[in-house]
Design a protein around this nucleic acid. Structure first.
Lengths: 238, 238
DNA sequence: TCTAGTAGCTGGACTAGACCAAAAGGTAGA
DNA sequence: TCTACCTTTTGGTCTAGTCCAGCTACTAGA
């Protein structure tokens, strides 16, 4: 005996599989029926329908766009954190159209975790860049980048929506010697959730990165929050 | 104006932070108050209380044990997939007590994805091993391992609950030459969910691995489902 | 033709309950 | 002391609604 929410999930999962395989245009522009339509169709309640949708979201089969509806998730971006390919190139290689929006830029003291990672002392400040990155118009990554102000004076504002790696190489002669990535499942809230069109407390993939140059001097600290259905990590050995 | 579920989340998150810091024994044996107690305390409803708990679960601050209650999550196991440290050694290094339980063992044709990854043809079969791994008595990993039968005849049943890497080295002279890991957020269902004491559709970290030996011959295909709050991946560059 | 205002639709959050199955704990009998 | 049974508690699932805020599409006026 299947529970009602699983029955609805299975029904939708089937439609989605057919839709993705090109068999059957069950959805217009990838949009699922509204929650209330599904309630009617299955003689159920919104709680149960939303249970089913939340499960499909957790699986990465669908995603939500705030108060606009639920949509079939496109194929994932495959990303190897240990490679140094930048976002634009990566997206282009996988036939996706990338975009970056600079949300804010400040020069602050910065949180303790950041200061420690960057080895800052006394009154040294950090530049905080907050950016939102999209694939085919869908926001998928909310990132906060911290850079020691001393190492990157007079940052070129015109280039903050492009590849920072390239900027740092060209204008500051940065040579990465090492990089440490930490990856965990976490949840998004407030500005992050809103920017990614997710609800408060929705699961996400959180990447924390520290980059080192020269003789192991940290020059960059990043926090990335990925819409989990948008990404798959590829990690080869060695 | 905070919504009710966020208020409850914040309250519990504070208690958990203090508990983890050793300040205040708010919980006995790490167990949170029951949902109905929280309903009473906040003059709310179970739906709202469960919203708050589900958010904390998504963040990895708490975990559930089927119909027994909600518990404060212990520190995560830090795991580098590109290193070849086995589960027992890894756990021991981080002061955790590992355990492995063999759930089932079969010789089957195997699913298409598996056969393709292992490059099987015609009637070649695979050995399927299903195991549940725990840390300090808490199940954290459900794994299914597929091995080509031809490459591993007469598997030593006595050793299937230990490190397979070691077994394969010692008894079959396996020399890993390459390994490919794919990591995504996904959801667990049925046997996987039950074994990990999660509910159907709960988010998890899914790792798909292919191991190669000699001249790029695949000899192992794994599917791992991790309780997400139990793990953090560490991925160094190069 | 363009634009500003609006009505309707969508998902987000919540109330106030109900019933069930599994787990835990207590109790009586062997 | 041990075991089998039973009661209580727990989370899991669901009903049948309500109210709200943001988005969309339509419409009336400039």
């Amino acid at each position: 005996m299947l529970s009602a929410n699983i029955e609805i999930r299975d029904y939708l999962a089937n439609l989605i599989a057919e839709y993705n395989a090109g068999n059957g245009g069950h959805f217009t522009a990838g949009r699922l029926p509204s929650e209330r339509e599904l309630v009617e169709q299955f003689s159920s309640t919104r709680i149960t329908v939303r249970d089913a949708l939340t499960k499909l979201e957790a699986e990465g089969l669908i995603y939500r766009s705030n108060r606009r509806g639920w949509f079939v998730a496109p194929s994932r971006l495959v990303y190897d954190p240990s490679s140094r390919v930048n976002f634009y190139l990566l997206a282009a290689q996988q036939n996706k159209t990338p975009a970056t929006q600079l949300i804010s830029q400040r020069c602050i003291k910065g949180p303790a975790e950041t200061r420690e990672a960057l080895g800052l002392v006394a009154k040294e400040k950090v530049i905080e860049l907050v950016r939102l990155r999209s694939l085919n118009g869908r926001p998928v990554l909310f990132e906060t980048i911290y850079l020691p102000e001393q190492r990157f004076p007079k940052l070129n504002k015109a280039r903050l929506e492009g590849s920072l790696t390239v900027l740092m190489e060209e204008e500051y002669a940065v040579q990465i010697c090492h990089e440490d990535n930490r990856i965990r499942v976490s949840a998004v809230y407030d500005q992050v959730a809103e920017s990614l069109s997710l609800i408060n407390g929705a699961p996400c993939l959180e990447v924390t990165r520290i980059r080192y140059e020269g003789d192991r001097k940290a020059f960059e600290f990043d926090k990335e929050y990925w819409v989990h259905s948008a990404i798959e990590l590829s990690i080869p050995s060695k």
